[in-house]
């Protein structure tokens, strides 16, 4: 508990956290505004497509989570932290819990904000959230943000360097996974099992991408795959944090 409190003070006492959080909510909502205003014959507006801009928030949440750990290495505060908690691993776990909660909150604000924005722009379209699938598509954004934040934290701890970790994460999310698909032969097979593709299977946004790359698993298994990858990375980060000189 005291560690969660310490990490909360750290996280909320820097401006970068607030900027990232603000943008992570604002950008998806702005995208929903844009999308809904353009919707018509070519762009269908429904509950699922109000969430089209969720990736902007995702990227920012990951930057926020990465910086929360790399800035500690950059400015040396990690050494003060480890002086207070010499066993180190609880620090990483406290950060993971806190970031998951914050990212989840940001995700829900962004998701329901986007939905509300689309409704404001196109009040005549039925955007009521009724089915379980619709709930998953909207409320699931918070879960995906939460897992992605922990994944970014793990990568940040492994690389300990803001520029490197952010470049690697964004490059992977925005480019690498779709590049894998282009590898002749095995590419499409491999791409189905990659973590961020799995997260889109969960949110129901993977179907629109490419009909040939369909997942051989259900949405909740997709979230499981995403979270499983994250846990492996977090465990790896914990082992490395314990062994390495601070």
């Amino acid at each position: 508990m005291r560690l969660l409190n310490a990490e909360r003070i750290k996280l909320l006492s820097t401006r970068s956290t607030w900027w990232c959080a603000l943008l992570a909510v604002a950008l998806p909502v702005l995208f929903a505004l844009f999308y809904a205003s353009q919707a018509g014959d070519f762009l269908t507006l429904n509950v699922g497509t109000t969430q089209s801009g969720y990736q902007f928030g995702l990227v920012l949440v990951m930057v926020l989570a990465t910086v929360s750990i790399t800035s500690e290495h950059r400015f040396g505060t990690i050494r003060g932290t480890y002086q207070a908690v010499p066993s180190r691993v609880p620090v990483l776990l406290a950060k993971a819990v806190l970031l998951a909660v914050l990212a989840g909150l940001i995700g829900e604000l962004a998701a329901f904000g986007s939905l509300a924005m689309a409704h404001l722009v196109q009040p005549e379209v039925d955007l009521a959230v009724n089915t379980a699938t619709e709930w998953r598509e909207v409320a699931g954004v918070g879960l995906v943000y939460a897992v992605a934040a922990v994944l970014a934290l793990a990568v940040g701890e492994l690389l300990r360097q803001t520029a490197g970790a952010v470049a690697l994460l964004l490059g992977y999310v925005l480019l690498a996974e779709s590049a894998v698909r282009e590898i002749p032969g095995v590419g499409e097979q491999v791409a189905r099992w990659l973590p961020f593709f799995a997260s889109r299977v969960f949110l129901g946004s993977a179907e629109g991408e490419d009909a040939t790359v369909s997942a051989p698993y259900g949405p909740w298994a997709g979230l499981g795959l995403f979270a499983g990858t994250t846990l492996v990375l977090l465990a790896l980060a914990a082992v490395v944090a314990r062994r390495r000189d601070a």
């Binding site: 006492s13 400015f75 040396g76 505060t77």
Partner: peptide, 11 residues
């Protein structure tokens, strides 16, 4: 150990 081990944007 090092007076600079503080986050510059934190009070």
């Amino acid at each position: 150990l090092d007076a600079k081990w503080v986050h510059p944007n934190r009070s």
